[in-house]
Simulated scan of single mutants.
Amino acid sequence: MSDSPLRPSSLINTVYGAFLRRLGGWISIADLITLMGELDVDGPAVRSAISRLKKRGVLEPERRGATGYRLSPAAHPVFDEGDRRIFASLEPADLADGWAMAVFSVPESERSHRYQLRTRLTWLGFGNIAPGVWLAPGRLLDDARAMLVRLGLSEYVHLFAADYAAFSDLAQTVSDWWDFPAIQTQYAAFTDTYAPVAERLAAEGEPDPAEAFRHYVPLLTQWRRLPYLDPGLPTELLPPDWNAVAARQLFQRLHAVLLDPSLHHVRTVTGLEDTA
């Protein structure tokens, strides 16, 4: 597990996203407390985190013979978008695919929307190239469009599919639009935490389901932040010492080893079965 504590609400989000969506999207509070206890999160912390997730519209209470919570309908597209970003966009973008450009202007009387736009575009991986002008690899265009519509922000934004024509050295210029050192620091922290785990698992063989679960949930919780910090820029535009490649390979290796036994453990604890 990471040396820096992961928030209980983030761990719960991971449990729902990685396992419970495919098991019907619901879990009893008792079973959730059991699973979270294996991650060193006690019952009061679980209940407090559930309360916050309920207020944010992520979870809804539902009784199925026992008190529990299910993912709200509004949360499903957010998790689907996360899947695309976390699992499908692991490789760098292709420079030939061009760029997604967002241009917005928000009246001062609605500056909270301006803050929300900046926050959400940053979270999607957009870099700020000028006031009100944001840029990302072209493959993020559909996710940006869906996010803006979902949050009711589309009326403030013009989205463009763009190509870079001239006049600077683009590889040098993009380093002003994204904070490469900060991104690399996050990748290094991930690798420092989980490279020893991978070595130990390689030496000891396949872990039992409970141990796999204890590794996988923190692993995915820490990893899923990174594809949002990293826009996935084309390789030609990245520094020569870019450390994301090794971190991605490490994540993919551990994901392949740990996911299935972790899911088996969740099924065993909850008695839930796949709904697909």
Rank of each mutant, 00 (worst) to 15 (best):
F167A: 11
S168D: 15
A136S: 13
D142F: 09
A130Q: 15
F167D: 14
T185C: 06
D143C: 00
A161Q: 13
I129D: 00
V133D: 02
L141D: 08
W177M: 02
I183D: 02
W134P: 13
A161I: 05
R120D: 12
A195N: 09
S154Q: 14
W178K: 02
Q116R: 13
R150Q: 13
Q184D: 11
V133L: 13
F160A: 11
D192P: 00
T191G: 07
H113I: 01
L140W: 14
L117E: 04
S112M: 08
L153D: 11
H158Y: 03
D176K: 11
A144Q: 10
G125M: 09
V174R: 02
T119H: 05
P181W: 03
T119W: 06
D179M: 06
L148A: 09
P131D: 12
P137M: 11
Y194I: 01
S175C: 03
F167Y: 11
V149N: 08
D142E: 15
R139S: 14
L159I: 02
Q186M: 09
V149S: 13
Y115E: 14
Q186A: 15
T185D: 07
P181C: 05
A198V: 05
P137D: 13
T173I: 07
S175R: 15
L117N: 05
F160H: 15
A165D: 13
E199H: 04
T191M: 07
R114H: 12
A146W: 04
D163Y: 04
T191V: 06
A182D: 12
F126M: 07
A162C: 15
I129S: 13
A165I: 12
A189F: 03
D143K: 00
V157M: 03
Y187K: 06
S154Y: 00
A166G: 08
R114L: 06
R139P: 03
V157I: 03
D176I: 01
D176L: 11
A162T: 13
V133E: 06
G152W: 11
V133M: 10
M147V: 14
E199K: 11
A202N: 11
E199R: 13
